[in-house]
């Protein structure tokens, strides 16, 4: 058996067989710079590619499925300051307690309209203005209702309490009005109050009654100072306010009847009557009916029989 001769291809030894990726490389400053630049480029390209690959689907998902809502807002501004401007009687603390502000609110998160509406629900307050003053001031200005009348109302436990009535018929409790001022205000009677969730329904016709009292206070304060009780029953029960009359009881006259119009002329006549009556000690005025306008009637009683409110 003959051995098969193995034919080998000659191995070409060219310089290209010299390995070019060996660890035998001199690290010079320039080569370091080049390596840093190259790695920077590779890393930058990698980050850019990753950002593109991840960013596109995530961005698309965010755009089409964004159902998130703001859970909380972190405030970086200074604490909120509330400045309150009130009228003569309502204390600032009373108003502030009714602002219902959230703890540590941000100025831009405050509902100005809500606060204004909330304050104006209280009958003590005629109107309220709420303003933002940057950076951190909330300014609340309140216009109060001043009492024209007071009412004596019996409570559920049988005890009486005093309520105040404003010019437009709003009924409210006395918050801070001093007693010496309250004593000058006449009582209002002959009224049935209708309770509501926020107090009582405003009294109809109260504006006419208030007009009478204000006109008397302005023109003849000596006369009105003696008025003790104003009864509105005959005014309210009339078919219209122009047909009824107002009854006033004073310390000197048992009953004065006023028509619900031309109060200045009626008061002038009353003043005339009282002037003419002055100096008469034997008899006293028991009833003056001014509701007939041009034809007032006057009733007298003897002094001993007079029943004025003291």
């Amino acid at each position: 058996m003959t051995k098969k001769k193995k034919i080998t291809k000659p191995v070409r030894t060219t310089w290209k067989r010299i390995p070019q990726k060996t660890g035998r490389q001199s690290v010079t400053r320039e080569s370091q710079k080049v390596k840093v630049r190259r790695w920077g480029r590779i890393i930058g390209f990698g980050i850019g590619t990753c950002a593109l690959v991840l960013g596109l689907p995530l961005g698309g998902y965010y755009l089409f499925h964004n159902s998130s809502s703001i859970v909380a807002t972190v405030q970086v501004e200074s604490p909120l300051q509330v400045e309150i401007q009130s009228g003569r009687f309502l204390p600032e603390s009373w108003i502030e307690s009714r602002l219902n502000l959230e703890p540590a609110p941000g100025l831009m998160q405050i509902d100005l309209i809500g606060i204004k509406a909330n304050l104006e629900k209280y009958p003590e307050i005629k109107s309220a203005t709420v303003e933002r003053h940057f950076p951190n001031v909330l300014r609340v200005s309140v216009q109060e209702r001043y009492p024209i009348f007071r009412m004596k109302v019996s409570g559920k436990n049988g005890r009486y309490s005093i309520l105040l009535v404003g010019e437009e018929g709003h009924v409210f409790e006395n918050v801070n009005c001093p007693q010496h001022l309250l004593r000058r205000i006449p009582f209002l009677g002959g009224i049935v109050l209708h309770p509501t969730p926020f107090g009582y329904r405003p009294i109809k016709g109260a504006k006419i009654l208030a007009d009478l009292v204000k006109t008397a206070n302005d023109l003849y304060p000596d006369l009105s100072r003696d008025w003790v009780l104003i009864l509105a029953d005959q005014l309210i029960m009339a078919q219209s306010f122009t047909e009824g009359y107002i009854r006033v009881r004073s310390r000197t006259i048992e009953e004065i009847l006023f028509a619900p119009k031309q109060f200045d002329k009626q008061l002038e006549r009353l003043n005339y009557i009282l002037d003419n009556h002055a100096g008469q000690t034997a008899k006293s005025l028991s009833r003056v009916n001014l509701s007939l306008l041009n034809q007032p009637t006057v009733e007298y009683t003897r002094v001993s029989a007079a029943k004025g409110y003291r």
Binding site: I18, Q20, T28, E30, K35, R38
Partner: peptide, 24 residues
């Protein structure tokens, strides 16, 4: 032809800069 050692020296200097020698 040349010495592999001598040629390697010059080739590896270029490799040290991060470049490849295309031809000698």
């Amino acid at each position: 032809h040349g010495s592999i050692k001598r040629m390697s020296d010059s080739i590896h200097i270029i490799n040290g800069f991060g470049l490849r020698v295309e031809d000698l």
